[in-house]
Each structure stands twice: as C-alpha cells, then as structure tokens.
Design a protein around this nucleic acid. Structure first.
Lengths: 154, 154
DNA sequence: TGCAATTGAATAGCACGCTATTTAAATTGC
DNA sequence: GCAATTTAAATAGCGTGCTATTCAATTGCA
C-alpha cells in the first residue's frame, strides 16, 4: 500500500492540505504587509504604494495600465492609489498627448527624492526574513510558478 | 567576478531580491484568492469567510478570539465578517454564559450542511496548483517558517 | 472589599482589491 | 467617412484588514 492512485484528489485533500498551503500563503502575506507597514511608516507609504514607487523608480512615465501589468493590478485599484500618491506630491498624472485615453504617471522631484530614503527598506526586510539569499530566491521562483498556474486556472 | 561577498546586504539587494520575494508572495496571494473567489462563488463565501467556516467545521462553538488566534486575525476583522455569516444563516453569535465578554460562534444546521458542498473545493485548488503533494507540503512549511520570522520582526 | 488594570468584542475610519459598469477616445470595418 | 467595436481609465459598491478607540465584563491587588 505504498503507492496511491492519484485519482481521488478531493478525498486525498479532505479539507486540509491544499487549504493549509493556501492559508500559509495568505497568512504569510498578511504578516509580510504588517512588517512593511512598520518599515514604510516613516515614508508615509503603504505596501502597494511602495510597489508602485518601485516600478516608477525603475522606469518613469508609465501609463496606468503598464503599472498594472507589472503589479497584476487593474485601474480600479490603481486609480485611487495613484490619486493618493499625487495628493502626497510624489507623482503627477497627465493624459498622454498621443493617446488621450491613457494617463501617464510621472515622478515629481519629491517622488524621485524618496528613493534614497527607501534604500534601507530591502535590507531591513531581508534581515527580518532570517533567510539565506538562495533560500529566498528559491522560494520566489516557486511562488512565481505557482502564481502562473493559479492565474491560468482562474 | 563569479562570487560576491554576502556582507553588504542592503547593497546586495538594492531594490531587488527581498522585494521580489515579497512581491511574489503578495501577487501569488492575490492570484490564490482570485481562484478561490471563483470556486467559492457557488457557496456564496469569500475566502476569509471560508477560512472561518473551516475552523468551525473542525471545532464548533469557539469564541471570536479563538477563531482569530487560528487565523491570525483580530476582532476588528472578524466581527463584521461573522455578522455577515450570521446574516447568511450559517452561524450563530451568542454571548458566553461563563464570561459575558466572549461571543461564542456556533454553526447552524445550514452552516453544518455547507461542509458537504465545500468538499469539492480542496481538490479543485490542488488541481489548479498543478503541483505534487510533496511540493506543496514543502512550500507550506517554508511559508510557515517565514511567517513566524516575519511576525517576530513585526 | 473596592477600585484599578486587563481583557474581549465592537466600532470608527482608512486603504486596498475585486466585479461590474460607465465614459471617452481610438481603432475597425464596411 | 462614419457607425460599431475595442480600449483605457474612472467610478460605484462590497468585503476585507489594519490601527486606534470605546465599552463592558472580569481579574487582581492593595
């Protein structure tokens, strides 16, 4: 009885295994944003706002939809978030001249300046994980491949 | 130039590695809840509501705080969620006789009955991951240990 | 015993993140 | 060349998830 047929999947994971992985994913994500909340408090950024800033620090002047593609978020989430970043003086929102449907997001001087102050965050997070670099890299790859498969099924 | 010293962690992960892991965690979590949204639509449950039901199906009659301990959520999140489950006729909320501060959550007949209909969910999720059981178990353990370390730092 | 400190739940207020819908601009197709 | 479709962003409405606060019940200690 060492091997089991792979067939009865529902029976093989009664209300347990898969749920536990998903719950681990869910609760670890919450714990992560909680850590970021503390680390980003001084910058007055939330974690999703920080992600948007990371994207813009890498490449300025993207359309809302381009930011959304990188972060897997859509305009319903990004529009209000970007308005808050605009209100905070970190980004500008301008309709594109070539395509008036698009809104181009640009960094302000203040937004660019924030990059320096954010430089300490990654190290602090890395530290908090208490993991080796290779461990984190491996975990990242596993999560990305899982993300892809989940997205395909959804 | 193949090897790099591991010392300057902040410099070694300039705005990259740790951030990438965290983003992988974040975005995979979103993808996961998106899949659950589809799978749970027929049960009229959100993913957090499903988690609460899982806890109650395992052990009925828990206090709000006990549910919160299992799910790493507090009363500010659970109270409105539980009221929605109550409004849906799935649970009852009663103040404990021994300690009137506590509210005991009990399954209704309808809540218990829902367990059968939810039985297909884990299999469907397992299927969607496209992973081996061992792979998922390993990932789960890694996430749990990461969660613990993040919680300690937060 | 009596009163302060603690605890459990609820509430207020904010920021996501989603689906569904709306509006306006660009593209297409005939 | 113009109607029909498609696209980008915004909006409406809902359900988390959080911090901070409030209120009532209980505990603990002088």
């Amino acid at each position: 009885m060492k091997t089991r047929t792979a067939k009865p999947q529902a029976a093989a994971a009664p209300l347990g295994l898969d749920q536990q992985l998903c719950f681990a994913l869910y609760s670890t994500g919450l714990a992560m944003t909680k850590l970021y909340r503390k680390l980003l408090a001084g910058l007055e950024l939330t974690y999703p706002q920080y992600l948007v800033m990371l994207v813009l620090w890498e490449r300025d002047g993207l359309a809302v939809s381009e930011i959304g593609e990188r972060l897997f978020l859509d305009s319903a989430t990004l529009t209000p978030l970007l308005k808050r970043l605009e209100a905070a003086g970190l980004v500008s929102r301008t309709r594109s001249a070539e395509d008036e449907r698009q809104v181009v997001i640009g960094l302000t001087a203040q937004g660019r300046a924030l990059k320096k102050r954010a430089a300490a965050v990654p190290g602090a997070v890395f530290c908090a994980t208490g993991c080796e670099r290779d461990e984190l890299l491996a975990l990242k790859r596993q999560l990305e491949s899982l993300r892809e498969r989940l997205a395909d099924s959804a």
